[in-house]
Design a protein around this nucleic acid. Sequence first.
DNA 1: AACGTTCCCGGAAACGATTCCAGTTCTCTT
DNA 2: AAGAGAACTGGAATCGTTTCCGGGAACGTT
Lengths: 336, 336
Amino acid sequence: MTIKDIARECGVSVSTVSRVLNNHPDVSEAVRRKVLSAVEERGYIPNNSARDLVRSRSDAVGVVVRGTGNLFFSAMIKTISRQLEQRGYTMVLHFLDSDADEVKAGAILEREKKLRGLIFLGGRFDYTSAELALVGVPYVCCSYTNVFGSLDEGEYSSVSIDDHETARRAVEYLIRLGHRRIAALVPSVDDHSISELRYDGYLSALIDSGLEPDPALLEETGGCFEMPETYEGMCRLLGRTRDFTALFVLSDTTAIAAMKALEDHGLHVPEDVSVIAIDGLNVSEYVTPTLTTMVQPAEEMGRESVRILAEMLETGQTRHVRLEATLREGASVRSV
Amino acid sequence: MTIKDIARECGVSVSTVSRVLNNHPDVSEAVRRKVLSAVEERGYIPNNSARDLVRSRSDAVGVVVRGTGNLFFSAMIKTISRQLEQRGYTMVLHFLDSDADEVKAGAILEREKKLRGLIFLGGRFDYTSAELALVGVPYVCCSYTNVFGSLDEGEYSSVSIDDHETARRAVEYLIRLGHRRIAALVPSVDDHSISELRYDGYLSALIDSGLEPDPALLEETGGCFEMPETYEGMCRLLGRTRDFTALFVLSDTTAIAAMKALEDHGLHVPEDVSVIAIDGLNVSEYVTPTLTTMVQPAEEMGRESVRILAEMLETGQTRHVRLEATLREGASVRSV
DNA sequence: AACGTTCCCGGAAACGATTCCAGTTCTCTT
DNA sequence: AAGAGAACTGGAATCGTTTCCGGGAACGTT
């Protein structure tokens, strides 16, 4: 069934039906009602392809996700999907291989699918303006970093917590509880992703409290927040030293892996080592011991990403939203 | 840039370019090469909307997911996405509200987006043929059940483990280790979903071993494999009786929640209670104690779903694939 | 009563591909 | 060498919308 059938049934032209369907003002109330009821009654659904063709754009929004093991993003994708749907957009999801180039992937996706916009979930984002020019549609970066400020704030939007500050607060919390020797597990200290920001926050907290960062207490665990790599990293750290009372880990799942390594080495959490992380996954409330973690407002981040993208599409206005992470005290930390 | 530009540049007609692009045989090798190189050089990307319009179909496959908290599906979605992409399809993901009707959602999705096919992840599937007739495209059900056999096997395809058998093997494993009083946490014993099959498997194992199922050892935990509900259910069970040495839970995440409840009640896993589950999530290898679980081959299930759907689209052939779950022994079970 | 506005509506040209149908050329057979 | 058939190509219709443009009716103004 096409728009023509509806037009015929109502005794009007296709133009008029189209106008009704698109909420154009120039149509009388009587006709509008007649068309609408015919559409309802016959269960007519417009053909998106035809619409997209003539408008030379679609209602699809790309979501490019980096980090396969990242449960935090799984939660966000759900709300992003819902929000997009609610606003009449379609989500085109794309998972990135760990070493893939998100901007290039986005650009390809955009041209193939005629995307309206893009949402990047995680990843490095130290691209130059020239590289980003590849992306011809508005985009918002979520949980990303822009360490070197190579991006002009007017070119894109972003949503994230303040990763530096959040990490700092986590570590300060440990310090307030009396911890002095605080180890850290970091995927990579200089990959221009949130890892770097969070690591810097860790350093700031130490330094501002007059503690000297000890390189021996730092272990890198590979770039992707994966549990096996983190477990191994923790084992390496333990092989080197046990002279620390607390551990700072950049994500919940990796913290869980780290706790496992600690237990496997006969160290108990929190009696021997306190553990704190960033993410706030649901499952972290159910592991033993429950994880103390800085909760990122996943739903809100998803909602905001979509809201901001929609705003960009309508008004062109970019926006940079920083949300607050909140401490959730579990049983994995105790004072010394 | 359109197909016309390529045609002009090569001095051929648009029909010819189209034929080259669609691998039609009737085109000379010389022309084919010329067109292809022009396409390559100019970076031409066909307009999907136009193609879809004239073909009156798209290359989109819908994936309808039930169960918001289900981490097992998160893993599967990733492989499904990759596999679909690899075969030239686009994934349209749709998360179901807990009480929504998957078939209706699929049908709407299908008509709005002109889907080629559908993949259902989880959910009740006790629809009548009449209801399923709403779905006008081939579909495969993944991790579902068809308890009452209302579906004709020729109408659809499916991929799953043998849920009854897997549950039975899990419980038999406990029995072999000497457990006699085995409690169970079940989302819902008669919701026509995999819960029911797995629960029946639990019963079969008991009965076949000459053990009498004790209703006091069964607790329902709401329909959706959620951790909070499961935690509460476990608490209710413990409030009623502690006369059991093992616990069977239907999914990993809910098992983790149950273990938490046990610990919170002063019962240790596995010293006081052994726990076994079904799923095989990565994170289950890192919780303390590591969870003993029947591992569903998530990747394989995702791959098979896509493969089978593609086959249905090409040949119309339906297929029902049962994959094997394998026991992964953790530290949450011990013999008595 | 004539004219200018405003309000609705219909006709028709796009949008960019696919595909059927009808050539044209080329090859091969007799 | 002529005719049949195969191989290749171009023209044109088509898919279902949106939107521009223009026309007619109704209305108010002078």
